[in-house]
Design a protein around this nucleic acid. Structure first.
Lengths: 209, 209
DNA sequence: TTCCGCCTCTAACTTTCGTTCTATTGCACG
DNA sequence: CGTGCAATAGAACGAAAGTTAGAGGCGGAA
């Protein structure tokens, strides 16, 4: 019976256009379409489609909130955003809420079909601009491990081990130095970072505040 | 003169096939191709192409390390991974190193052309499977700050203050309880999280591992 | 060369942390 | 109306953490 789909979109032409075009493809089966989040919230949990194509801007409840509530009641359903919103906040909110795909409305219908197949195969098809946003935040978050400028090389090594929760003894073993030296390094680290203890140092060194 | 491109790929057929096909499109200009990272490292900084298509598995230095070194010397260049590697580690390493696009080798040549244009327009075209990995880690990272389930309400409050680096005394003052009680709470927290000290508890409670 | 920062080490010391044990109160659930 | 759990508390103790005050070697910069 093909991949089951629901569409939530308030603009009549877009909603019907999508439905018509997708229905041409025998691999898909459009179960129903909705023009408001509230309707969708009522019906989708009963239909349990494999994919929901979701707009963000809807009258009343928006599409993101709709995803949050629907996915609890229909966990097998995957959500494909289909919207004009390209600003970071909306994108990240949608992904956090549970969307797996994110296409902008300038996407062609043929690509939409491809994307729906990929989504169903466990992929996350998304417009290249959206993916770039993800890559950017990913890189920003991952580059934490950068050494702190004001600290010497050795002090940064110590700080790294300190962040794992190791004891002075364990640190001294790993670096093959005495615990006295470890003490010394850590003391200097606290001095340079203007903090009083381990936790404050880690907060200051690695984000979190 | 079109978008300038270099290709780094050790398999002759793949490299030449790419070059031929891309050259058919007048919007692109393939400046040169290389079969090893070392060659690429020498030449690309001189050519400063707008895009480099990069394989990961190469004889000698791998493609990821190659990106790290090249992008310092040619910062305008964008990197499009083109590889069979689909495991998380390689993907994330590549993105961290500076790749902006990531296509798997089952991608069609026509889609490659599309992807190159998108990359040049500031997007991050990537295979849907790759994007899914990114979405997954993104969601995992964002869902922090929630109180830890296994801990009681009070224990979470204590943990919160603990994370600021406060002394037992300071915590007891803020919560208007005795330091003995604070001790007790913290002891239970360590027990429930299976850790031995403050830093380990914070690492386990708030991401970082 | 002299000076300074980094890395190393020792020793003695105070403070804080973390464990263990014991005990009381209050609330919720069957 | 017990039973269980969260929250409270104090005491006592060992184990770490953090401070202070030395001192020597080494390499780069003034």
């Amino acid at each position: 019976m093909g991949i089951t789909i629901c569409i939530v979109e308030d603009l009549d032409e877009v909603r019907e256009g999508l439905k018509q075009f997708i229905s041409l493809n025998t691999e898909f089966n459009v179960l129903d379409t909705f023009s408001t989040a509230e309707e969708a919230l009522n019906e989708i949990p009963k239909l349990k489609p494999q994919i929901v194509i979701m707009d963000i801007s809807l009258p009343g409840m928006n599409g993101i909130e709709c995803i949050r509530q629907v996915k609890d009641k229909s966990p097998i359903t995957q959500f494909m955003m289909f919207t004009v919103y390209e600003n970071d906040e909306k994108v990240f909110e949608a992904l956090k809420a549970g969307a797996s795909g994110y296409l902008l409305k300038n996407t062609g219908l043929v690509q939409m079909i491809e994307a729906l197949k990929e989504l169903h195969n466990g992929g996350s098809p998304m417009s290249a601009n959206i993916a770039r946003k993800l890559v950017t935040v990913f890189r920003d978050k991952e580059k934490e491990a950068a050494p702190i400028e004001v600290l010497s090389k050795r002090e940064n090594e110590v700080l790294q081990l300190l962040s794992k929760g190791l004891l002075y003894k364990e640190i001294s073993d790993q670096l093959s130095i005495s615990t006295g030296t470890v003490r010394q390094h850590i003391h200097r680290i606290y001095e340079k970072l203007h903090v009083q203890n381990r936790t404050e140092a880690l907060n200051k060194a690695f984000g979190k505040n």
